Measured scan of single mutants.
Amino acid sequence: MGFKLLSKLLVYLTASIMAIASPLAFSVDSSGEYPTVSEIPVGEVRLYQIADGVWSHIATQSFDGAVYPSNGLIVRDGDELLLIDTAWGAKNTAALLAEIEKQIGLPVTRAVSTHFHDDRVGGVDVLRAAGVATYASPSTRRLAEVEGNEIPTHSLEGLSSSGDAVRFGPVELFYPGAAHSTDNLIVYVPSASVLYGGCAIYELSRTSAGNVADADLAEWPTSIERIQQHYPEAQFVIPGHGLPGGLDLLKHTTNVVKAHTNRSVVE
C-alpha cells in the first residue's frame, strides 16, 4: 500500500471513529477524501466538511520552486461564519470567499490569524475590503508590521502568557507558548472536538522541520505538551499544512522538532 493511500485511509478511519463516538456532533463529509496538494491548482481553494458547521479550507501556493498546501478553518456561528487564517495570499483568499459563498452561503463576518507569517495573514486586506472584521493577538499584529505583512485590524486580548485561553464565538483560542513562531495560536472547536494546530503542528508525513527561522526550538516541545494537557479530548487535529489526523500529530511534531534540534547540535 502506497504512503499517500495509507495517509488518506488514516484520515478516513479517524473521521469514521469520530462519527461513531459522537453521532450528534459529527456529520463528516462523505463526498470524498481530504484534498491534497496535487489536486488543488494554485489560485483555487477546496472546502472539506469535518463536522456539522465545521470545515477546513485548503489552498496551495508556490514557494521556492515548489507547491505547498495550506489549511485553515471555518466555523459556523449562528447565521454567520468565523474564518481562521487566510488562504495564503490575496488571490487565494478572494477564491476562498467565493467558494464559501458557493458552498455554504453564509457571510464571513470575523477572521482570526493564528500567527504573523504570510500563509496566515496574506489576504487580510481582501477580507477587510469584503467587510470582514480581522483579528490577531497584539504580538501577531506587531510582528506582521515588522515583517511588512498585512496586519489584522483588531487585537485579541488575554493571550499574552503561555497557557492563556479565551473564548471567541464558537471557538476557544489558546496560546501554548512559542513553537513554530513566538505568537502562534491554537484554535479548538469544543462542539466538535476539532483542534486546529496551525503551523505549530505537523502532518504525519512530514519528517523535516522546514521553516524554523522564527521558531523557538527549545520551547516548542513544552508548548505541545500544554496543548495535549489542555485538549486531551480532541479527536480531529488539523495541521497548518497537509493531512489531518488525531492527537498523534502532536507527538510526531515533537519528535521531528527534537530530531532537528539534535542534528543542529551535532553539526
Rank of each mutant, 00 (worst) to 15 (best):
M1G: 07
M1H: 05
F3L: 08
F3Q: 06
K4N: 14
L5I: 15
L6W: 10
L6T: 09
S7V: 10
S7A: 10
K8L: 07
L9I: 14
L10P: 15
V11D: 11
V11I: 14
Y12K: 15
Y12A: 13
L13F: 14
L13S: 15
L13I: 15
A15Y: 11
A15F: 15
A15T: 11
S16R: 15
S16A: 15
S16Y: 14
S16H: 15
I20F: 08
A21K: 15
S22T: 11
P23K: 11
P23Y: 10
L24C: 08
L24K: 12
L24W: 07
A25P: 14
F26I: 13
F26K: 15
F26V: 15
S27V: 14
S27I: 10
V28Y: 11
S30Y: 12
G32R: 09
E33K: 12
E33V: 10
Y34T: 08
Y34W: 15
T36F: 09
T36W: 14
T36Q: 12
T36R: 11
V37L: 14
E39C: 06
I40C: 05
I40Y: 05
I40N: 06
P41T: 10
V42T: 10
G43S: 06
G43E: 07
E44M: 11
E44L: 08
E44I: 08
V45G: 04
V45R: 03
V45K: 02
V45Q: 04
R46L: 08
R46P: 05
L47G: 03
L47W: 02
Y48H: 14
Q49W: 11
Q49P: 14
A51T: 10
D52I: 10
G53C: 05
G53Y: 07
W55M: 02
S56P: 09
S56A: 15
S56E: 15
S56Q: 15
H57F: 01
I58K: 05
I58N: 06
I58Q: 06
I58R: 08
A59C: 06
A59N: 10
T60H: 09
Q61L: 06
Q61I: 06
S62L: 07
S62F: 07
F63T: 10
F63P: 06
D64T: 08
D64F: 10
G65P: 04
G65D: 15
G65T: 09
G65A: 10
V67P: 15
V67M: 15
S70R: 02
G72I: 01
G72E: 02
G72N: 04
L73D: 02
L73M: 14
V75K: 02
R76Q: 11
R76F: 04
D77Y: 06
D77E: 09
G78E: 11
G78I: 08
G78N: 10
D79I: 09
D79P: 09
E80W: 03
E80K: 08
L83I: 10
I84G: 00
D85G: 00
T86W: 00
T86Y: 04
A87N: 04
W88L: 00
G89T: 05
A90L: 06
A90I: 06
A90Y: 07
A90G: 14
K91G: 15
K91D: 15
K91E: 15
N92Q: 07
A94Y: 13
A95D: 07
L97D: 00
L97M: 08
L97S: 01
A98G: 14
E99G: 08
E99V: 14
E99M: 13
E101Q: 15
K102N: 12
K102P: 06
I104E: 00
I104V: 07
I104P: 00
G105S: 11
G105T: 14
G105K: 11
G105E: 09
G105N: 08
L106D: 05
P107S: 10
V108N: 01
T109H: 10
T109Q: 09
T109S: 13
T109W: 06
A111E: 13
A111Y: 07
A111R: 03
V112I: 10
V112W: 03
H115L: 02
H115D: 00
H115K: 00
H117S: 00
H117P: 00
D118R: 08
D118A: 09
D119Y: 03
V121D: 02
V121E: 01
G122Y: 08
G123P: 04
V124H: 06
D125A: 09
D125G: 11
V126S: 07
L127K: 03
L127T: 00
R128I: 11
R128Y: 10
R128Q: 14
R128A: 14
A129N: 15
A129Y: 15
A129R: 12
A130I: 08
A130S: 11
A130K: 13
A130H: 11
A133N: 11
A133D: 14
Y135T: 00
A136Q: 02
S139K: 13
S139R: 12
S139C: 04
S139G: 11
R141S: 05
R141M: 13
R142P: 03
R142I: 13
R142E: 14
L143I: 09
L143D: 01
A144W: 03
A144Y: 05
A144G: 05
A144T: 08
V146P: 06
V146H: 14
V146A: 14
E147G: 12
G148K: 09
N149V: 09
N149E: 08
I151E: 04
I151S: 07
P152A: 03
P152K: 01
P152L: 02
P152Y: 01
P152G: 01
H154D: 08
S155D: 14
S155R: 11
S155P: 13
L156M: 07
E157F: 10
E157N: 13
L159F: 07
L159G: 01
L159M: 06
S161N: 12
S161W: 10
S161F: 13
S162A: 14
S162Q: 12
G163P: 03
D164I: 06
D164L: 07
V166K: 09
R167V: 11
R167L: 11
F168Y: 06
P170K: 05
V171Y: 00
V171I: 09
V171P: 02
E172G: 02
E172S: 04
E172V: 06
L173M: 06
F174W: 01
Y175A: 01
P176E: 01
P176L: 03
G177F: 03
G177S: 06
A179V: 06
A179Q: 00
H180G: 00
H180W: 00
S181V: 03
S181F: 00
S181T: 15
T182M: 14
D183Y: 04
D183N: 07
L185W: 01
I186T: 12
V187K: 01
V187N: 04
Y188A: 01
V189F: 05
S191E: 14
A192R: 10
A192M: 08
V194Q: 00
G197K: 03
G197Q: 04
G197M: 02
C199I: 00
A200T: 07
A200R: 03
I201R: 03
L204Y: 09
L204I: 13
S205R: 07
T207G: 13
T207D: 15
T207C: 06
S208D: 13
S208K: 10
A209I: 08
A209C: 06
A209V: 12
A209F: 08
G210C: 05
G210D: 05
G210M: 04
N211S: 12
N211T: 09
V212A: 14
A213K: 13
A213Y: 08
D214V: 07
D214T: 07
D216H: 08
D216M: 07
A218C: 06
A218R: 12
A218I: 11
E219V: 07
E219G: 08
W220P: 03
P221T: 11
P221W: 06
S223T: 10
S223N: 01
I224M: 07
I224F: 05
E225Q: 13
R226T: 06
R226K: 09
Q228S: 14
Q229T: 10
Q229G: 11
Q229D: 11
H230S: 12
H230W: 07
Y231M: 05
Y231G: 02
Y231K: 03
Y231V: 04
P232R: 10
E233I: 09
A234M: 06
Q235E: 12
V237H: 01
I238K: 02
I238G: 02
P239K: 02
G240E: 05
G242N: 03
L243N: 15
L243P: 10
P244Q: 04
P244W: 07
G245R: 03
L247D: 08
D248M: 08
D248W: 06
K251W: 11
K251R: 14
K251Q: 15
K251L: 13
H252C: 01
N255Y: 14
N255Q: 10
V256T: 08
V256M: 06
V257G: 01
A259L: 09
H260Q: 13
T261Y: 10
T261S: 13
N262A: 12
R263P: 13
R263V: 14
V265R: 11
V266N: 13
V266T: 13
V266Q: 14
E267M: 10
E267G: 07
